[in-house]
Each structure stands twice: as C-alpha cells, then as structure tokens.
Design a protein around this nucleic acid. Structure first.
Lengths: 268, 268
DNA sequence: GACAAGAACACGGA
DNA sequence: CTCCGTGTTCTTGT
C-alpha cells in the first residue's frame, strides 16, 4: 500500500503537472468512498483551477481556487494516474476527473480508499490529526515526541497520529537498520537508539523517494518505482538469513501486523 | 496511613487475643464506611465466635464462625484498638465491638476507612482483587509480575491490585535502598535492579515488622512501633542531605503522591 | 474514589 | 495500521 515515499512522488508529479488546469468534470463510480454527497463534487469542482498538490502522510492533497481541497487516500493498492488528451481511463476506475484541456486523472482502488472533498474553512479529522512529517523534523523534536509516549515502538511509528506516513512496508527496513526489535518499549530506548531510529527513518524514506518509491506501486504517470525488496535486509525474505550478519530471520506477529526481523540484529 | 507492617502486627495481636471470644454487640457511629445496611451487622455478628485474624495488604480480616468475615481498612490514620473489661472506648470511636467477656475493640478513623461485613460465599471486590503479598513471594514470581507491566515503578508498587500492602510511607525507603527513581519505567529495569528492588521490599517491611511497625501508628494495644524516620535515609528529611552519599535530597511529585529521593542514589 | 488520557485488543464496516 | 467507528480493560496521572 502506498506510504510516504509513494505519496511524496505522486504529489510532486501532480505539482509539476496540474497547477493552472481547470476542472471540467468529475465522474464517480464508488460513492461510498466520499465524505459528502456526490452532488457536492459536481457542484464545487468544475470550473475551479488547481493551485497545487502536496503529500500529507499517506494522503495527497489537491488544492483548488477558492480554498476547496480534494484529499485522496489510496488505501490498499490504490492508484492515481494521469491521462493525456485522447487517452481513455481504464474500466476499473472508481473516479475520473477531467480538465478543460482534455487531460485528467483517474483513481483505482481494489479495497478501500477515500476521495474527500473539504471546503474552505472546514475541518477534516483524518488529516487534521496526523502527527508530524518525519522528514520535516529535527532530531530534537523526534526525541521529544518519543518522550511523551509509552508502549512498543512499532505501533507508535505506525500510528498516523504519532508520526505520519510510515506503514508496514517501510517500517521493517527502518527497524532493521536501527537495530531495534519492533516490540522494544519506547521508554527503554537510549539516546543512541533514538538517534539510530531517527536516522533510519530518514535514510529509508529518502532512499525510496530518490528511487521513485516502491517498485510495488505505480506513480502518477503509471511507472513503477525502483525501491524493491532487494533494498530490504530482512523484509519478506523467505530464505531466513540476514544478509548483514548471517543469522536467522523470523516472521513475527506484532499486534495486528506481521514483521520480519533478524534475531541477532534486532533484540529486545 | 497503616501499611503492611502495621497490619501484620495488628493482625498478629488480634490472632493472639481474640479467637474464641463471642460477639456481644456492635455499635456503629459512621454508617458510610459500611458495605451493607447497619442492621446486617447487628443481625449477623452477635453470638458468633472469632475464629482468627489475618492481614490482607492494608486490610485486616477477622473470621467468624459460620464463615462471615469482617474486613477492616483503616484508611488514613485510623486505629483499631483492644479494650479490657471495664475500660471505656474513646469518644471519637466510629465503631465498637464488644465480646461477651466484657472485652472488645474500637475503631477510630479520621479520613476514609472501611468496616465491611462479608458473608460466607460472598465476594469482596476490594480484597478479592489484591495483588500478591510481597513477603510471601519468591523472586521469580516477583520478576514475572513485573514482566507483565508497563509504566513507572512507583505507581505499580502502590497499586494494591499489583502487589498488596505498600503505601507512600515505606515505598520511599524501599526505592532508596533499591537505588531506583520512582519514575523509572518497569520495562527498563534490569534483572539486577529487580533483584535489588525485591530485596529492598523484603528488608524494609520485615525490619518494620520486627520493630513493631511504624512509630507513627498505634498497634492493637495502643502502643507505638519503633520504626521511625531515623530508619529512613531520605524520606521526610528536611536537611536535604543523603546520609549515605552526602548528595542533595529532593522532594518530587510522582503522580498524586510526593516523594523524597536522593538525586545521586536514585537516578532515572 | 472520581476522572481523564493513553494503550491494547476485539469487533464490524467501508 | 487504511481508517473509522464501537466497545472493554488496564494503567497512569491528576
């Protein structure tokens, strides 16, 4: 599922492509993904120009003239994809937005996902309450953030209200690089461990962004990223051997998620 | 407030004095301390003989013929005291129980406290859910107990559902002797720290029992114990100097309770 | 003991 | 953990 790097890439591509375009029409095939009546989308979007796009954790925000915003969450395996004039969006599209120049973008979802319209001045609980962006954060702030919390480190990092954008794909490599067990208690982390964690988060997310994000997801132009399993030391390795130390790797349950760890590099 | 050592001493004195005596009457001056209608006490206790007494954390349990039990909690600064035939209980008594031989005991309270009557087969949530007795526990069990919990060590030790009988008086010396800061997180305790803590609990509580318990409380015969502030390294020391290392002592807030610590011997 | 806040967990639902 | 509710239970802190 798309996480921070994918959304950073998609938002950047949108930002390069869409500002200035004027909405011509919106077609919705899956009304249950909306946060308000379908008519509102038809009423408020057409005629508005795109001002810009930016990532918000696992969401992307499209800003329009007048202050309205479209907030998109791709859920599991969703895709937002641009199409040129004359191109046809695929059959499976759950949402199609066209601009007056004939271009547009479609969204596909294979499970859940959201296309929320938020009007100027309105609140949006799901993105208003996101924790800070890990890449826009100094170590001191990260350290402070951890000091205010107890419990295991993994659920904390996955909680979008604590820190935005990390999901169960990248966290596996992050915790491996930091040398931390997912169930390590936050209050037990030493300053050095926090530093390693902070740096691992930056390194993993930035590496992926640099490579165009995950090879399992498609970007705004339908291209795969180049950050694949070959970048991951332990995640989804069926061979059961840590490429760093040669020890056994294991798949363990951590709350509702599963995770691969190296029993040697990531001890409790 | 009477804690485990006081209750151990009182229960032992009751056990030496009361078994075999038959209740003649019960007089209650503070019905809000009861768990059931006052009439029940009058109806069920007179005519019954005492079988025995035992401490339950900060409670003392008096068992009667037929399985009824009287559970007494002295709250803050309460007192249970025996009187001989012909002696008069003080004016301030909130509860008086006399035996057919003319002896009896009275209870005084100055804040909260309980005199609960529990009939055979009934449950009593406040004592049924007490944690284990720290003096009847092996280190392994104590270690296991800690493994199941998060949060600071002091609130844990004060929580009667985790471990019974420790209050804010003895814990100060316990944590000092263990060299632990009250806000130390349980998951961060090393095996050695847990061992020190376990031993400090035993040493402090047993020392006090040996000396007849706290010099601030009265036992079942109205006598003061000999465990006083002179036994405590840092608690309530206004001079601000640790007698062990000479460092500064401090009074800090730990949740709802205050605590004296030595800043050198008890670091986070 | 009242009360809030956070953490874990189990649902069902979109 | 995708996010939302709904609960409960525990634990901490005030």
């Amino acid at each position: 599922m798309p996480e921070l790097p994918e959304l950073v890439v998609i938002a950047e591509q949108m930002q390069q492509t869409l500002p200035g375009k004027e909405v011509a029409s919106v077609t919705i095939f899956q009304p249950k993904c909306l946060n308000r009546p379908e008519e509102d989308y038809q009423r408020y979007l057409p005629g508005k120009r795109v001002l810009g796009a930016r990532p918000l954790g696992k969401w992307v925000e499209l800003g329009f003239q007048g202050g309205d915003r479209l907030l998109v969450n791709l859920g599991m395996g969703g895709e937002v994809c641009y199409f040129k004039k004359g191109e046809e969006p695929p059959e499976k599209s759950k949402w199609i937005l066209t601009f007056t120049d004939g271009t547009g973008f479609f969204i596909t979802l294979w499970w859940f996902g959201y296309m929320h319209l938020v009007r100027k001045g309105e609140t949006h609980p799901m993105t208003d309450t996101l924790g800070p962006d890990p890449l826009a954060m100094a170590f001191d702030a990260f350290n402070k953030l951890l000091e205010g919390h107890r419990g295991s480190i993994k659920p904390f990092l996955l909680n979008q209200k604590c820190i935005r954008g990390i999901g169960n794909f990248y966290i596996q490599e992050i915790l491996f690089q930091a040398g931390l067990h997912p169930l390590k208690e936050i209050p037990c982390l030493s300053k050095e461990e926090k530093k390693r964690l902070f740096q691992a988060i930056r390194r993993v997310l930035e590496d992926s962004i640099t490579l165009g994000s995950s090879s399992y997801e498609l970007d705004f132009f339908g291209a795969k990223g180049r950050y694949g399993l070959d970048r991951m030391a332990v995640a989804y390795r069926e061979d059961g051997v840590c490429p760093v130390c040669g020890s056994k790797t294991e798949k363990i349950k951590t709350g509702s998620t599963a995770q691969f760890i190296c029993i040697q590099c990531q001890q409790l």
